[in-house]
Structures are given as C-alpha cells and as structure tokens.
Design a protein around this nucleic acid. Sequence first.
DNA 1: GTACTATTAG
Length: 877
Amino acid sequence: MTTSIAGKMPVGFLLRGGRFEHCSDQSGENRCGGKEAIPDRQSYLTRSNATIQRLSAISRSFNARATNWRLLPNLKSNHFPRLLSSGRFLYTQTSLDDSWTNNRELNIDLLFHSCTKTHHASRLHALLIILGKIQSLFISTRLVNLYANLGNISLSQQTFDQIQNKDVYTWNSMVSSYVRNGSHNDAVNCLYKMLKHQIKPDFYTFPPVLKACRDIKNGKRIHCLISKTGLEWDVYVAASLVHMYCRFGGFDAAYGIFTNMPFRDMGCWNAIISGFCQNGKGEKALEILNEMKFEGIKLDSVTVATILPICAQMEDMIKGRLIHLYVIKHGLESDLFVGNAFINFYAKFTELENSRKFFDDLPTRDLVSWNSIISGYEQNGNPNRALEFFHEMQKDGFTPDLLTLVSVASSIAQCGDTRGSKSVHGFVLRRYWFLKDVIIGNAVVDMYAKLGNVENARELFDRIGVKDVVSWNTMITGYGQNGLASEAIEVFQKMVETEHVTPNQGTWASIIPAYAHIGALKQGQKCHSTVLKTGLIPDVFIGICLIDFYGKCGKVKDAMSLFNEIPKSSSVPWNAVISCFGIHGHGETSLKLFKNMTDSGARPDSITFISLLSACSHSGLIEEGEQCFKVMEKDYGIKPGLKHYGCFVDLLGRAGELQKAYDFIKNMPLKPDGSIWGALLGACRIYGNTNLGKVVSEKLLEIDSGNVGYYVLLSNIYANAGKWEGVNSVRLMANEKGLKKTPGWSSVEINKKMEVFYTGNYSHPKCDEIYEKLEELTSEIKVVGYVPDYSFVLQDVEEDEKERILMSHSERLAIAYGIISTPPNTVIRIFKNLRVCGDCHNATKFISRVCDREIVVRDSNRFHNFKDGVCSCGDYW
DNA sequence: GTACTATTAG
C-alpha cells in the first residue's frame, strides 16, 4: 500500500465516551470517519490516571465479573489481555495470563509477535505508553517496524517522527519500512535526511536503499555514497549493488563488482544468479551456476528457488530433475521456498503428481504453496480439484489473496459455474482488489467471457481504470470466442486509438481469428503485414492463427507457405493446416499431411482427428474416414468423443449411407446428442429421405427441442417432397415454442470494409442497383441453362414469388453487390453464417460463368470455389 | 543482501 492511500485512512484507536474502539483495520475500511492521531506519549503519561479508569470501564464491559481493579498493577490476569485481544489474540492472552499470575515482567517480545492487524499494534502502542516503555529507543523503533510490517506506513512514519534522539538503527528501520511498503522515493529521501542529521549510515542502511532505486542514475549516486563510506566491499552491500546493476541491465558492472569482491558468501552468488535470472539472462545465470560448482560451492535453498523458474522457462526438464536429485541428496526438500518452486516447476511440465508430492511433504505451508498448487491444478485442466484445494486452504486458516482468486476465477470458468462466477466477482469487489491490480480485473473479465456472459465481461472491462494490453486482448478474445466478431473488431479499433497500449502477440492472436470468422481477408492481411513489420514472426501462436485465417479466407497457398515457416513442435499447427485443406475439399491432402505429421514424430490429439474426419467427410472419402476412426483409438489411444462420432455420421450420411449411419448411432457407446442426430437429419434432407427424416427428427426434438435449425431442416425435407401439410405442422410446432429462425446473412469485403446483407432485406443504400443487377443476371443465366429449384423455398406461394424469394437470399445479394462494386477479374469472397442454399449454389455456378468471375463462398460448413461454371465441391453443398 | 505464485492467445 502506498503512503498516499494509507495516509488518508484514519487508523489507530479512539478513546471516545468511555469506549475503546478501533476505527480501522488493514483493509482500510473506515468505520468512524473521525480524525485520528497516533497515541501521543506526553498526553498519555499526564492523563494516565483518567485513562486507566476508562480502560477499567471498558474491561468491565468485556468481562462482567471483573469489578475490583482500578490501577494497572492490580489488573487481573483475565482482564488486561481482553483489552488487547480482538478474537485472534489468544496467544497473547495466554502469555499475558502467565506473566500476570506468576508476577513476572510482561513478555513484550511475544506481544509484538502477536500483532497481526494495525489495531492490535495500536493497542500495544497504547499499552507501551501507559507502561512507560515507549521511552526506550529500542521499543519505539520496534513499533516503527511493526506498523510497517502490517502495511501501515503512515503510522510507522508518525511513530518515527515522534522519536527523539534517533540512532542509526531507528533510521535504518524507517528506510526499510519505506522500501517494504513500496515508498521508494521516501526511502531514498530518508537516507539523505539521515545524512543531514549527521548520522553515519552503516551496512544495514544501504541494501534497502539500493533496492529502492528506480533508475540507474539514482543507483550510481548511491554507489558513490557507499564508496565514500568505505562499505563497498561489505558482502551485503556488494551483493545489493550487484543486484541493483542487474535490474537496470548493467550486467557488466554487476559482474565486475562480483569478480572483484575480496570475499564472496552464498548470498553474493545468489544475488548475481538471481539478478541475471530475473532480467532475462537465464543462460548467463546457468553459466555462473557452473562457475560456482567449479569452485566447489554448494547450492543452497535460495539458489534452487532462483534457478528452477529459469529451467521451467527454458523448458529444460532435465536440469530441473537433476536439481531435484541434488535437493534430495542435500536434504533441502522440506525447505518452504524450494518446495514451492518445485510445485510450480512440475506443474509447468504437467507432472502434477510430483507437484502434489512436494506439496504434501512440506512441513509448513504458506500462501504461496497453496496458490501454487491451486494454480497447478487449474492450469492443467482440473478445475474441480483446484477448487477443492481452495476450500481446504481456507479450512486450514489461510486467507486467500489476489493471486488465489485469479486461479479460482479461471477454475470457475472452466467448470462452467455461472453462480460461482458471481461469488468470485463479489469476493473481489468487497476487498477492493480491482483497484489494486489489473491482473484480477482481467481474470474476472475472462471468466465472464468464457462463461458466455459477454455483457458482464464488457461492463467490468469498461470499469477497469488502467487497462493493460492483456485487458484489451482478453476482451477481444471474449467477443471472438462468443461469435461476436464485429464487437471484437470494434474493441480492437478502440485499442489501437488508445495511447500507451501497443498491440502485442496476444492481440494478434485474438483479432486475427475474429477477422477469419467473418472472412475479412484484406483487414487480416493488414494485421499480417503489421506483424511482419514489428518483427513478431516467427511467433508460433500468430503463425497458427494466420494459417487458420488464410485457410478460412480461401488462401490455401498462403496458409501452406506459412505452415512451412513455423516450427511444428506440437500438434496444433498440424491441426490448423489439416483442417484448412479439409474445408476446401482437399481431403487427400489432409490425409497426406496427417501422414507427414506422424512421420515427423508429432503426436496427433483429439482435435487432429476431428479435422481429419471432417476433411474425409467433405471429400466423400468413406473408407479413409473409417480407417481414421479405427486408428484413432487403436494406435493413438484417443477415445472418440461426441464430435468424432458426429463427423463420422456426417461422413456416412453425406455419402448416402443413411441406414448405416442410423445403425452406427444406435450402437455407439456414448449417448448421441443433438449434433449427431442433426448430422443425420441433414443427410436425410440431401437425399430426400422423408421417412428416416421423420424418425430422426422425433429423436432430435426429444433431446433438443429448442434448436430452430432442426425444425428448418425437417420442414425442408417436407417441402422437398411437396408435403406442405408437413411443412405447416413443423412451422406451427416451432411457433408454439416461440422459436425464431436465425436470420441468414452474408458478408462481402469491399474496400477493406465488410458489407453485410440479410436475406430479404431491402435497406441497403444500393438496394435498387443490386436487385436490378440480380434480375439481369437471372435472365442471363437462364439462357445458359439455369433452372430455379423452388424446393428451396419453404413458403407455399406462386412461382414468380418463389423466384423473388430465391433472388433475395443474402448470399445472392452479396454476390450481386460484389460484382457491381469491384473491377472485372477481381475474386469475390462471400461469407455466409448458415449453409448456402442449394439453388443459390447452382445459380452461382452459372453466374461465375457469365460474368467470368471467380466467386468464393464460405458458409458455416465448407468452402465453395466457383469458376467457369463449375464448383470445386461439385454439386454437393 | 539474494528466493517461490500472475491473467489473454490456436
């Protein structure tokens, strides 16, 4: 907590109307709002009698049976501790009891140790004044330290100011109090004040001051001062100097001091190692570690705790394991810092059993241990276990901190626990943590977004005062993952306009998928060029996003050349490129890539097989698909999930194997969900199988009666067969349920701007021109053989009305607009949110021929490349 | 004096 905030908060105790109350605790809640000062020794000493009487009154109210005491020395053992206690002071109470009953001197040391809140300290402060102990320089200095340790720098400073004849020890305490509470400038100024008072700094003074230096200039100035006092080669001071230089990138200076030191203890070695580690010189740190070993010096717990995160960062599992052996050999396993470091180390390598072992074996645990194990489980996809640890931790008496809640928020999101999310939000809100650090704000925004609650996410996002890059990225991703690409783009644009934030790799990895989603080729390409300019490639993350992006925008070649550039250490780039060829109907290429993948040693995962199966399905590769399905579990140990079954049903269905698909569903070990029956229903529509369609739709409406898509499909089937009563009854059913059809829309990118068209919409400014063009096109294509297929019109109306309905389908509007707004020979790229209508598919083939244009349509399912009157995917939409 | 935890992204 900074001075300015703490300074505004009245903290301490009040003697008001016989009530002894504290008005504030560490959380900064101000309960009485009155002005407050720290206990003033003079007034207490002169008014001590009155005070004692008041104290006795209060004590009586604490303990009704106690009446016979007036003066301090006559206090009964069970009264006075009560005065100091506030529920958590049990330890003190017993120790005081002891001192009192045995007529011994108060154990002040114990009292100091028992203070865990500012108001405890204030009461102790009062007690010390009453007992006259405050005159002791030693005790008053301890109070300065105590307040600082409890995070109350303003009381610490006030206590310090009241001390007369301060010695070095007092000044040193004040300096380090400032540093501990983040008041860096105050610390440095305190040193200068101390010099002004002609107090000579000693080797306890400089280390904290060096820690407080915020820039190299200040650091060098302090270095000069140190040289003048002749303390330069003190081990503590020198180690601090080394660390200070490292912090500002002065590695040579640091190493220079280090090598010139006449004597080096463990701390010095650790200081330079940690200095290098924390400032991005992990390799150099490991070199020094070797040097150290060469000199026969053994690592201690600090060295281990410093070096382990570097091993994790450099993905050097082996080095970590060697250190583990070393630790066992030298009995450092039960060290708290070492244990915590290992919990994190193993969690990073997904070896939770090892993390768990360290956690279980720790003789004492601290908050970091709990946070580490919670985040370990959370990061490794076991949010339930993480939450169990969270509860266990509280049972164990630990108060969660901000970082605990970061992990908890993510766990709650992973569990899909909407109610829990509100609790998390409230928990953080009540503690004012949103003001303390952006991290927690970002985590909660992300939690809401992951739970699909974008409104709450946005509201909180807007409230975050100082947003950092991650805040923006989180919001962009949140929108993107909830299918709200245009909102994501809007946030991104706002971000670009905001000063002090520059997009980083995370930003690109969030915005590029949004552009991919709506097929905004030009805007995505602009991102790509910006990325190249900023030199962020070959970042694997962005590379993969771009592969996916180019794939979805129909630029298979670009996707492939990017794929060739990036490292392929995991399955993810492979998955991206396999699915890219899959959606374009190049199933064979996908299969070939899969072979390359396994040859290269990359391990396929469940997503690989989803991409692969859907690739087979898009290309009608039944046998290959069946083979994939078999191999998946047998050779790679991946249990097929619902998505895999869905792809496979789709594969059989598209190939016309309706009965086979139906039998397959009936025999599958998992309970089929809507998407699986939906795939079969889609196939029934393609092959006009009304009977099976009816059976399947009954199953579907049992499981998922709220999904409009299925009603639409079923009514499609009826309409196809000319059974208009069926169409009407389905429509009636859907209406009864209050379901509305998802409006179909298509977009086309003109001049780097996305234009969106809704089916049957006449509101576009160029509407007349568009319809004019469409009428012209329709008559032109009719000449070359286009026959409208009215089965795609679900309304039972006259033929010319049906033609008008087909013409106003969003994809056709977008194509017509594309043709009138772009120069000849330009490729027209359309994106449609639903599946392309079959008649539109047919019409587009003819349009591509009469206009001599290449038209690429990406719908919710796949790609359709139209050129010279043919479509790359045949007549199969 | 030196040490262990940190959110987003396919």
